[in-house]
Design a protein around this nucleic acid. Structure first.
Length: 415
DNA sequence: TCTGGGGTCCTAGGACCC
DNA sequence: TCTGGGGTCCTAGGACCC
């Protein structure tokens, strides 16, 4: 059995280029929420040496000098193109795991691996305009590592089994292994372990003791023993959060209340979408820790609901009660998070009681969800959220919703 | 002036039970 | 002076991922 990892190259930047042929071979960067920092770059922008995660204001001069195209993140567009890519990949796999917005694991059939990799790349490019890389290996971890190699090759694919496995592992640095982050990399380096090959030479018990069971599975995967399952249907989320940074410091409790209502609504929509209810509402606020001179404060509160619910007014009033507990006057708040936990299926015991108590609540919410899906987010909302509140997101370089809004379809002109 | 958002899993330690 | 053993549940914190 063979695993493939298909990864969209510089996904957000590639999405922005699909409808802008004038940007072909030009550097493109995509910003985080609030246009804060650089989260994605086209190949050309990477070549200019811009590091991922750098704040926008630090690269303004580069942008002017090299005429870099800058975009606010347009998740409506990225999610739509992502689902088109995933639907294509489904045709090539006996099993498909959508791992993230721009990556999927596939279990391949018996065809020649080179042929299938070429076919996948060609089809996705022709049908969506998105370039992808294909890594193939006997485990998910090795397919991931093969994908890293694929990205550096002009063919855009690489099969682990076509290489000398000992040499491959020797050239793979521990920090580049899927599942080994910065802390573990530093720890392993301190212990004289720098390559995947060296990691596989440690005993299972040593790896488990120092890198937990997760690290031990990674070791087995590097040895070619599949130890991480495919997840075809994503399990329901165990925690759902909605959190945003403010574009300007917020001091007023009423503004925070409004933001809590907005993000509480967003989180609750996600909750209803997976047909769940939650028992706990956790709300947290913090000041801007990047501002060294400011007085800093952060705090969180968890409110338990009387009955598990996915009804926005229940969630929002809990969030507001929590906020009243933790709000302190005189701080400049930067960020607020609403986090829903204690998630259960909506059909479980306790809820029956609730539905008997007031089934109208759920009928109201079904209608609201329908209207908002049709006419846009916040067409109907619970707390009179203003369109122009100053705590809302900054998105000054937003591209059109080319694929999801009739008024923003790309126009083609003849001649 | 300007520094993202949304998740998962694991472990240690404390409270509590018999 | 002597001060068990085994278990569950919960939370906080730390690691990881994109």
């Amino acid at each position: 059995m063979k695993y493939a990892l298909v990864d969209c190259n510089t996904f957000y930047a590639s999405c922005e280029k699909v409808f802008r042929p004038d940007l072909k071979n030009k550097p493109v960067i995509v910003l985080s929420n609030n246009d804060g920092c650089v989260v994605a770059m086209s190949r050309e922008a990477k070549a200019l040496g811009i590091p991922r995660g750098i704040p926008l204001f630090k690269v303004e001069s580069h942008i002017k000098k090299y005429d870099i195209a800058v975009f606010s993140s347009n998740y409506t567009l990225y999610h739509d193109l992502s689902s088109r890519v995933m639907n294509i990949l489904r045709n090539f796999a006996s099993e498909l795991e959508i791992y993230s917005i721009d990556e999927a694991f596939l279990i391949l059939g018996g065809e020649s691996q080179d042929d299938i990799a070429r076919l996948i790349r060609g089809t996705v490019m022709t049908w969506t305009g998105i370039p992808v890389s294909v890594g193939i290996g006997p485990t998910k971890t090795l397919a991931k590592a093969a994908n890293k190699v694929a990205k550096k090759r002009p063919e855009g694919y690489f099969d682990f089994s076509s290489s000398d496995s000992r040499l491959f592992l020797k050239e793979l640095e521990v920090g580049d292994i899927w599942g080994i982050g910065r802390q573990y990399q530093a720890f392993l380096n301190r212990n004289g372990i720098f390559t995947a090959l060296q990691l596989t030479q440690q005993s299972d018990s040593w790896v488990k003791k120092n890198l937990t069971m997760v690290g031990l599975r990674t070791k087995w995967e590097l040895e070619g023993k599949p130890s991480i399952d495919m997840e075809q249907a994503p399990p329901p989320k165990k925690g759902i959060l909605s959190s945003k940074s403010f574009s300007y410091p917020v001091t007023d409790l009423l503004d925070l209340m409004e933001a809590a209502a907005d993000y509480g609504t967003t989180a609750t929509e996600k909750l209803r979408k997976q047909k769940s209810v939650c028992r706990y509402v956790n709300i947290s606020v913090s000041t801007n820790y990047f501002r060294q001179g400011d007085r800093q404060y952060s705090n969180a509160a968890t409110i338990e609901l009387a009955v598990p619910s996915a009804y926005p007014p229940d969630i929002i009033s809990a969030a507001r009660r929590g906020l009243e507990q933790i709000y302190r006057k005189g701080f400049k708040y930067k960020k607020i998070t609403v986090y829903l936990t204690g998630i259960e299926d909506e059909n479980r015991g306790q809820l029956d009681l609730f539905l008997k108590e007031d089934p109208r609540k759920y009928r109201v919410m079904e209608s609201v969800d329908r209207i908002n899906r049709k006419y846009g987010r916040n067409t109907v909302n619970c707390m009179n959220i203003r369109e122009t509140s100053h705590w809302q997101m900054k998105r000054e370089q937003l591209s059109p919703r080319y694929t999801t809004n009739w008024n923003e379809l790309p126009l083609i002109s003849a001649g």
